[in-house]
Write a protein that binds this DNA or RNA. Structure first.
Lengths: 131, 131
DNA sequence: CCCCTTCTTGCGAACGGTTCGCAAGAAGGG
DNA sequence: CCCTTCTTGCGAACCGTTCGCAAGAAGGGG
C-alpha cells in the first residue's frame, strides 16, 4: 500500500496550523508561523508534510498566480474557490453549472477524462475598506 | 501610454515560433528551438518578449501543473482552453456561461476585480486511438 | 521496559525556472 | 548621419522547492 506513516509532533503541528488558517497558505508562511511560535521544525519538513497531506486528501492545493504552491485543509470532496488576492480569505464554491459545462464541452470535442481547474481571484469587501 | 515598443528581429522570432507551435510552450522550449535554428537570441530576451506578448494580449499564458509558465499565441480576446494531456493539442473555448457564473458568484460574496482561471484538461479522441 | 529497524527530521547544499544589472548594440526620430 | 533611448545577451542573483545525509524518534518484538 501507500506508505506506513508515523505520527510526529511535526506533522501534527502542520496539520493544526493549516486547519487554523482562514485561507490558502504557502509552505513558507506556515513555516514562518511555526518558527514564530518557537517551533524548531524545519522548512523541508513543512514541505514534506504539506505534500503528504495534499496527497492523502487532507489538504487541497493550488498554484498562486506567481507560482507558489498554496495549501488549505479540506475535508469534503470536489469544489472550487473564490480567493481574496489581498488577504487570502477563501470561500469554497459549489459549481455545478461549471461542472456541467466542462463535461459538455469536453464531450463536444471528443475529449474524455476531463479534469478542470476553476478558481476565482478577487478583492473581498473587507479589503476594499467597505466593511 | 503603455510603453514605446521597438521592432527587433528577436521579438519577431519569438512571435513567429510561438505562432507555429501547436499548443502551449514554455520559454525554455522556445529558447531551445531558436538556438537550434542557429539563433543567437538570449534566454532572458525570450522571457522578456513572451511576457510582453502576454501583456499586450498577443499571447495567452498559463501555469503548467509543475509551475512552469506556458505561452500560446492568441489573436482574439478572453477565452479558455481545453488541452489534451497526452498530445498537448489545444482548443480555445468560448465560455460565457462560466464568465457569468464567475461574475455572479463574485458579486454574491462581495468580491470585486474578479479574475478567473478556467482550464480543462482531458484526452482527445485521437490519443484514445479512436481516430 | 529496552532494543532494533525503519521512517522522519533538520540542515545546508543543490536545483530549475525566472529575473536582475549592466554595458554593448540597435531602432528610428530629428 | 547622429543621438537618445530602448533592447539585448550575458552571468549572477533570486526564490520556492527538493535532495542527501547523518542524527533522532516511532513503535513493534522480545
Amino acid at each position: 500500500m501507500a506508505a506506513p506513516r508515523r505520527n510526529t509532533w511535526q506533522r501534527e503541528a502542520v496539520r493544526a496550523r493549516l486547519a487554523e488558517a482562514q485561507g490558502f497558505v504557502s509552505a513558507q508562511q506556515l513555516y514562518a508561523v511555526l518558527r514564530d511560535e518557537g517551533s524548531t521544525i524545519g522548512l523541508a519538513t513543512v514541505y514534506r508534510n504539506l505534500a503528504q497531506l495534499a496527497e492523502s486528501g487532507e489538504a487541497d492545493s493550488l498554484q498562486s498566480p506567481d507560482g507558489e504552491n498554496l495549501f488549505r485543509s479540506c475535508s469534503t470532496g470536489h469544489h472550487h474557490h473564490l480567493i481574496c488576492r489581498s488577504c487570502g480569505d477563501t470561500r469554497e464554491l459549489e459549481a455545478s453549472v461549471v461542472e456541467d459545462w466542462a463535461r459538455q464541452v469536453g464531450a463536444e470535442h471528443g475529449f474524455t477524462d476531463i479534469d478542470h481547474v476553476v478558481d476565482l481571484f478577487g478583492i473581498c469587501s473587507r479589503c476594499r475598506g467597505e466593511g
